[in-house]
Simulated assay, not measured.
Amino acid sequence: MNTHPRNAGTGLKPEWFEDIAVNRTASERRAASLATRRTVKKEYQAAWLVKAITCIDLTTLAGDDTEGRVKRLCAKARRPIRDDILEALGLADEGITTGAICVYPTMVPHAVKALQGSNIPVASVATGFPAGLTPLPQKLAEIRYAVDQGAREIDIVITREHVLTQNWKALFDEISAMREACGDAHMKAILATGDLNTLRNVYRASMVAMQAGADFIKTSTGKEDVNATIPVSLTMVRALRDFGALSGQIVGFKPAGGMKTAKDAMLWLILMKEELGLPWLQPDLFRLGASSMLADIERQLEHYVTGRYAASNRHPLA
């Protein structure tokens, strides 16, 4: 899925972010306008929803995950839309799949086996997810384990303390070590933005993660009290845009946590198109970390082709 050059990082450059201020009121006003200033209807909405499916990291991160659950999730990733709906949309031969499967490290072998013959990458959380408070050697060992098991993408979590205490060198060094441990696997840096207190901290953490070589920056683990929000996402994508202008390098974005509906998917797609443009509507630069969202998108697509809403049990997640 990833076709762009890896982010090589830049070295720690505090002058790129230390003096940046973020106007929360203006950010919230801009975020609120996205849902009211742009509408996508009928066949265009259907097309956007199919696009959203191709950008979903279909995820299970539960304490009771099993091989069977992961296999069902992988089957859904291979065929995320029912055949009759695909036929009605004229997409039966397009090979529509989700962007990736995201699981815990011990579930990676099951996912890799279930996805053999497809081009769907397996992403694994690591580094003491979700708290990220295990010692660094264990974090790096967990990354290497997941990569050795076949994960092609690693979703790491940062130590929030480094952001809250403004210890940018410690944060940079930690993420750099994680990036090295990932080897050829793409690294998504989870900032756990709900724990960072201010949008200014979100901007700074985003910039440090990219300077340290993150291929994606990601909002949340999905386990915080507050997960992905539009104001936070707006702050992160503008940091991403600034980093690109300063470094000449391209970095992807992944909101995750709390997104459950097709309407949510549309809102984040609009954000990406308006702030970054069409290249960031592709799965190599944009992912949606979600699970239940897919069922609602499929339900909306059935409504488009039949004119009727189906019961939710007609669209089981996996």
Rank of each mutant, 00 (worst) to 15 (best):
M1V: 13
M1W: 08
T3F: 14
P5Q: 11
N7L: 03
N7H: 12
T10Q: 13
G11T: 11
E15H: 03
W16A: 11
D19R: 12
I20L: 05
N23S: 09
N23V: 07
S33N: 15
S33K: 06
A35F: 09
A35E: 10
T36H: 05
T39Y: 12
K41I: 15
K42N: 14
E43W: 04
E43C: 09
W48I: 07
L49I: 08
L49N: 00
V50F: 09
A52T: 04
T54P: 03
T54R: 08
T54M: 05
T59Y: 03
T59A: 01
A62F: 00
G63A: 10
D65S: 03
V70R: 02
R72K: 15
R72F: 15
C74M: 09
A75R: 14
K76L: 11
R79Y: 14
R82T: 10
L86H: 01
A92F: 10
D93R: 13
D93H: 12
E94L: 14
G99W: 01
T106L: 09
P109M: 03
S118L: 08
S118R: 03
N119E: 13
I120W: 02
P121I: 03
V125T: 03
T127S: 09
G128V: 04
F129C: 07
F129Q: 04
P130L: 04
L133W: 08
P135T: 13
Q138E: 13
K139W: 08
K139Q: 12
R144C: 05
D155H: 07
I158F: 08
I158E: 02
R160I: 14
L164Y: 06
L164S: 00
Q166A: 15
Q166L: 12
Q166G: 11
F172D: 05
R179D: 13
E180I: 14
A185F: 06
H186S: 13
K188A: 11
A192Y: 00
D195P: 02
L196W: 00
N197R: 15
T198W: 00
Y203R: 06
Y203E: 07
R204S: 04
M207W: 06
A209T: 07
G213T: 02
A214W: 06
D215R: 01
F216Y: 08
F216H: 12
F216P: 05
F216S: 01
F216R: 11
K218W: 07
T219M: 02
T221F: 01
G222T: 00
E224V: 09
E224F: 04
N227T: 11
L234P: 07
R241N: 13
F243A: 07
L246G: 10
L246W: 10
S247I: 13
G248Y: 09
Q249T: 04
K254V: 11
P255E: 10
G257N: 04
G258S: 07
M259F: 03
T261C: 10
T261A: 11
K263W: 15
K263D: 15
M266L: 14
W268M: 06
M272V: 05
E274F: 08
E275P: 05
L276S: 00
L278W: 14
D284Q: 05
G289F: 04
G289C: 05
S292G: 08
A295L: 12
I297W: 02
R299Y: 15
L301E: 02
H303Q: 15
V305N: 03
T306F: 01
G307R: 02
R308C: 13
R314L: 15
